[in-house]
Amino acid sequence: MTALYQQSLEGLTRLRGIAGAMVVSADDGLVVAESLMEGIPGDAVAALAASLMRRMGTAVSAAGFTPPSFMHLQAARGALLVVPAGPDILLIAIGDRHINLGLARIEMLQAVEQLG
């Protein structure tokens, strides 16, 4: 399973603008597998992205909607992408501002299908 994770993550990090990708435990916000460029704080990305996804999931649930299938945080100098990859697992990617969002989203959803 770890090899499969690693393969998917490395595929994602080959995309332009993606600086790292990781599989993260949704409840704990801990890294399960990662492929990161040097200098990317994996533990912090995992904990913060999982927490944001959890809070957003609560808001979405309060709206009576089904749980999120994709989340994108756009910031001035970077972006975070999160896709649930099964029960209690998240696929997370971090990148720069100029990430090709459409392509990254498709690649992440495909990766999740492979992981599932």
Binding site: D43, A47, A50
Partner: peptide, 8 residues
């Protein structure tokens, strides 16, 4: 909260 945030 989560273990990840606590640890971080």
């Amino acid at each position: 909260t989560s273990l990840g945030l606590v640890r971080l």
